[in-house]
C-alpha cells in the first residue's frame, strides 16, 4: 500500500511553517496542504489512499513546539509533545494524572513514541483517547496562523467527526490545562476496541468539591462533555444514577464492534466506573 506522491517541506521555524501552510501566491491556504505532526493517523490514511494531500508541512523540526511546563497554575503542552512524553512526564503525572493516564492508553508504545497531542486533537478522531480527558480537564488549545493567535476551549475546538474549528492556515500550537488547586480525583475508563486499540467508549471523570466534569469519547460523532451527568453528580447523585443518563439524547455510533444500543449501555457502565474511581482518588 503506497501513498500518492506529494511535496514535502520541513520548516525550521513556526513562521516558515505558517508561510508554507498558507501556500499559493495569494497566500491563502487551499486545503491541499496538510500539516504532518507524528503522522500516526495521517500516514495510514495516505497509504490506503483515503487521504492524498498535495503538500505536507512537517512540524517535526520546528523548534519550540515540544515542551511540558507549568506557568501560573496552568500546564502548557507544546503541540509536538509525544504521547510518551506526556505519559512519562513527572510534572504531568504529579499535577495532571488524568492526562498521563489518557496518554498511556493511546495505541501502543510505537505510536506513543511518535504521535503528538497536537496531531491527536487536530485529527479529531471520535474514538481517540485524549479528547475525553481534555474535556474533563477543561483544557484549551492555542491556534496560530499568520493572522495571529487565538485560544479556545477543546470543547469548542472539536466540531464533529474529523472536523475541528481549525481555519485554513492555522496550526495547533499548544494545549493548556488549568491545574487543580486541590482535591479533585480523576480517572479514565476505556472499553478497548480489540483490533485497533481505539476506544469503543472512553469516559474521563474529574470530580472535586462541588464540581464534576465528565468527558466522553467513542460514543458519538465527536467527544463531548456529559453535562447532564455532571449536573446530577453536582446535585449529589451517586455514580450509577448519574452515569445512567450519559447517553440520553445521544446519537450513538454503531459499528461491528458495538451497536448504538450497546455503546449507550457500556457508556453508562464505564462512566460509573470512571466516576467511582475518580471519587476514590479525591484527596
Amino acid at each position: 500500500m503506497i501513498p500518492q506522491n506529494f511535496e514535502y517541506s520541513s520548516p525550521r521555524s513556526l513562521e516558515a511553517a505558517l508561510d508554507q501552510l498558507a501556500g499559493g501566491p495569494d497566500g491563502s491556504a487551499d486545503g491541499s496542504t496538510k500539516i504532518l505532526a507524528g503522522g500516526m493517523s495521517l500516514i495510514p490514511l495516505m497509504k490506503l489512499r483515503l487521504a492524498a494531500p498535495e503538500r505536507l508541512v512537517d512540524l517535526r523540526r520546528v523548534p519550540g513546539l515540544n515542551y511540558i511546563r507549568e506557568e501560573s497554575g496552568v500546564l502548557h503542552i507544546g503541540a509536538m509533545t509525544t504521547h510518551y512524553e506526556v505519559e512519562s512526564s513527572a510534572l504531568v503525572r504529579a499535577k495532571c494524572p488524568l492526562l498521563a493516564e489518557a496518554a498511556a492508553n493511546i495505541g501502543d508504545v510505537q505510536v506513543r513514541n511518535v504521535g503528538t497531542i497536537g496531531g491527536s486533537v487536530a485529527h479529531a478522531d471520535p474514538a481517540a483517547d485524549y479528547p475525553a480527558s481534555l474535556l474533563a480537564l477543561e483544557a484549551s488549545v492555542t491556534l496560530v496562523s499568520k493572522a495571529g493567535e487565538r485560544t479556545m476551549s477543546v470543547e469548542d475546538f472539536l466540531v464533529d467527526t474529523m472536523t475541528t474549528a481549525l481555519e485554513p492556515g492555522e496550526i495547533v500550537r499548544e494545549v493548556t490545562v488549568p491545574l487543580e488547586k486541590s482535591g479533585a480525583g480523576t480517572a479514565y475508563a476505556k472499553m478497548v476496541q480489540p483490533a485497533s486499540g481505539f476506544a469503543i467508549v472512553g469516559v474521563a471523570a474529574r470530580i472535586g468539591e462541588g464540581f464534576a466534569r465528565i468527558g466522553v469519547t467513542g460514543l458519538a460523532s465527536k467527544a463531548y462533555r456529559a453535562r447532564n451527568v455532571e449536573a446530577l453528580l453536582e446535585g449529589g447523585a451517586d455514580a450509577a444514577t448519574a452515569a445512567a443518563v450519559i447517553a440520553e439524547g445521544v446519537d450513538a455510533n454503531s459499528d461491528l464492534h458495538a451497536s448504538a444500543d450497546y455503546r449507550r449501555h457500556v457508556a453508562t457502565v464505564y462512566a460509573a466506573r470512571a466516576i467511582r474511581q475518580a471519587i476514590s482518588r479525591k484527596y
Binding site: 476496541q193 480489540p194 483490533a195 485497533s196 461491528l256 464492534h257
Partner: peptide, 28 residues
C-alpha cells in the same frame, strides 16, 4: 472471542484490515 471475517449483505468484507479484524495481542 474476537476473530471474525464479516461480509455485509452486499458482499463487502467489513473486517478487511487489522484495524477491524482482532488478532490476539499479548495483552489479550
Amino acid at each position: 472471542l474476537w476473530e471474525q471475517a464479516v461480509y455485509d449483505d452486499t458482499g463487502q468484507l467489513i473486517t478487511g484490515e487489522l484495524m477491524d479484524y482482532a488478532v490476539p495481542k499479548a495483552t489479550m
